[in-house]
Nucleic acid binder design. Structure first.
Lengths: 223, 223
DNA sequence: CCCCTAATTGCACTGGGTGCACAAATTGCC
DNA sequence: GGCAATTTGTGCACCCAGTGCAATTAGGGG
């Protein structure tokens, strides 16, 4: 999970989109822990106080760091919230990367989503999205995460196909894939998501199937 | 052109997504004029000073209104910039609405884009996007505009198809359409756009063709 | 233990964004 | 035209997001 994007303040370590190389030094571990703690505290504050009812200072206090340090990790409280979505999408793209190279891009995308049964990140993100429905402040950052995912998936696809494929073709296909996936998730949020906020495995399964279905429609040209 | 979305502060006049009904009262005219003046001044300040090098107060001064009044129109200077994109997409959706009802959604989308030869909004937006490349502050708002367009197009499609069509199917298709269109535009920005910032009719034509091509790929299921 | 680098923190400052109360413009009505 | 009602613009005060800078502390390597 390379979490170095423009969602946080830190510049990318690796210019290429390579996958996880984790320094296990003490410094790095502390940073990872702090980052995770911030994300968790942000979601907690959100569900307790509601959006806009807590400040960056509240968040920093909850984690036990200074306000200034928080801004070393995230450019805004909303960005910390959107990081959950970011992490989920990064996971999906990681799955995509591990698909066999001779598979169709679309098939790989479908398979990647299917592989995302791991209830952790999916249900975390689903809960997150439920909490931030109709909260444009956060949604702006979540849209950035989706946009970022488009870039990364594009890079992964190009990486796999090499120079054989038309870049324009790949680019638009990836745009359509992400667009359809995002639409499926929003549909789930509106129609299938638990109003309680408690996302069970059954709910996650429905979501997974919806996304898969959306990509299959896409493969059929929405005929 | 109903310009009442969450990009500006004003609540929607019409709950349904109906097309332009313009009150020609003096009040309404003044508001429209002020709004247009703000958008224009924002683009001017952007091209003169560069992004982040002008404040909301500068912008208000340029228009001849108070800072407070500016915030009655837009929630941020960036939002004023993104309004250009918003206007363009609204125009495209308006074209879509005027397509015959028996046409395929995808065909209508293609036709709508083809109808957008009107160099005004397209080249304005293209110039805008060129100026805001790699400017995440503005891009976040532009992403909102794209997301808003997805909602509107979805509504228009449902409106046309009635209850005959599967809402999920329509939703994901629209998501894919917008996603592919957005990707095509980004491709254009990176590869075909004039570095000078001066967008000629030829450039617009290329852009239009790229978007059309993207939608045709989509119709073919990216085979 | 001691240097060196990286991370944290405090401080001060700019400017976005908003609630509020009041002035100015517009409208409808007579 | 005059007058009341409503809508829009504005000034003011305030909060807090976000940032640069310099001092401080923590980790890593010898």
């Amino acid at each position: 999970m390379d979490s170095t994007t423009f969602l946080d303040g830190t510049p990318p370590d690796h210019p290429h989109g390579g996958s996880a190389e984790e320094k296990t030094s003490r410094r790095e571990l502390n940073k990872q822990a702090t980052r995770a703690a911030i994300i968790e505290a942000a979601v907690n504050l959100l569900s307790e106080n509601g959006l806009g009812n807590f400040t960056a200072e509240d968040l920093a206090d909850a984690v036990g760091i200074s306000r200034r340090t928080f801004f070393n990790y995230f450019p805004s409280p909303e960005a910390a919230l959107a990081a959950t979505v970011q992490n989920f999408l990064d996971g999906a793209i990681e799955e995509f990367r591990q698909r066999p190279a001779d598979e169709t891009i679309l098939d790989s995308a479908i398979a990647a989503v299917m592989a995302l049964v791991e209830p952790g990140s999916l249900s975390r993100m689903a809960r997150m999205c439920l909490l931030t429905e109709n909260q444009p402040q956060v949604q702006r950052w979540q849209l950035m995460a989706w946009d970022d995912a488009t870039s990364k998936l594009s890079a992964a696809a190009v990486e796999r196909l090499g120079t054989k494929a038309d870049p324009f073709f790949v680019r638009t296909m990836v745009g359509a894939i992400i667009g359809a996936g995002k639409a499926a998730m929003e549909y789930w949020l509106e129609h299938e998501a638990p109003r309680s906020g408690q996302v069970t495995d059954a709910h996650s399964m429905v979501l997974r199937n919806l996304i898969t279905q959306a990509l299959q429609h896409l493969r059929n040209g929405f005929a």
